[in-house]
Design a protein around this nucleic acid. Structure first.
Length: 259
DNA sequence: ATGGTAGACCTTCTA
């Protein structure tokens, strides 16, 4: 089974680009982030024509997440627990009813910039909520994938120019520590498990020729429960997608599980 | 040291 995550930076601005990639890559399940539209504006029809079930947790202008699956979806959750007072659409979860079911959480973790503001506090609080929810899900001892745009650069090797990110929320000690704490619950970082070489970037800024200079960072992650990690066959970062017409600033990351 | 791009949308915010 192929599971993908991709921050598309507006599904409607990116539709042709995204459909092209779906036709080529044929993911069984895909988590999309930053769809930047309300549920009713999500272009579900072309995906349904390709055989996908579509669930959306949208929001006007900002954020918004969706999950598309060739298998039926059950147990759909929109938003993390303890969400009172949080109006950002950043989490969607479902049980994918494949022959061997797998629970999938699609994550758009807050960016948190600039540091020293409420936005950074919100990032850390959101990571705390994700941590507690992951703890609850891991207790099921079932195949689980928590995948998406984590907006965290875990290690200096995950940035082409780490010194340029020292003042950024994505590379703060607290952000990195919270990401490590999440992994230490017993989750496996699929990229580190299967490859782990420096340079597996998933994001290049639109500005200052970051793509042309390969000033990238690895911030889109796939974290697997032990029962899913045992079935991990491979991971691919679809870097070529960044070179196409009207690209997102993120590229798709796809894992294959023997499920 | 600075500025550079993209998307949504009401002119500025978020990334």
């Amino acid at each position: 089974m192929k599971l993908a995550t991709w921050n598309v930076n507006s599904i409607n601005a990116r539709l042709e680009n995204v459909l092209d990639w779906f036709r080529e890559a044929q993911p069984d399940v895909a988590c999309l982030q930053e769809i930047k539209c309300v549920d009713e504006k999500f272009p579900a029809e072309p995906f349904e024509s390709m055989g996908y079930n579509v669930v959306v947790h949208g929001q006007k202008t900002y954020n918004g997440v969706a999950m598309l699956s060739k298998y039926p979806l059950d147990d759909v959750r929109r938003g993390l627990p303890d969400g009172e007072g949080d109006d950002h659409a950043r989490y969607i979860e479902a049980l994918v009813l494949a022959p061997q079911p797998v629970r999938v959480g699609g994550i758009y973790l807050p960016n948190g910039n600039p540091i020293g503001t409420e936005k950074f506090d919100y990032k850390l609080r959101w990571m705390g909520r994700l941590h507690r929810h992951a703890q609850d899900l891991l207790a099921f001892e079932e195949p689980l994938a928590l995948m998406g745009d984590y907006n965290v650069i875990p290690e200096p090797e995950d940035a082409d120019k780490p010194e340029g990110w020292l003042g950024d929320a994505l590379f703060q000690p607290q952000s990195r520590e919270a990401f490590r704490a999440l992994k230490y619950l017993g989750l496996t970082d699929a990229y580190m498990e299967m490859d782990g070489r420096p340079g597996g970037y998933t994001f290049w800024d639109y500005q200052a020729g970051a793509w042309q200079r390969n000033h990238g960072i690895r911030i889109d992650h796939v974290l697997l429960s032990p029962q899913a990690a045992d079935k991990l066959r491979g991971i691919e970062i679809h870097k070529d997608v960044r070179d196409r017409e009207k690209p997102s600033d993120h590229v798709p990351v796809m894992v294959e599980l023997d499920l």
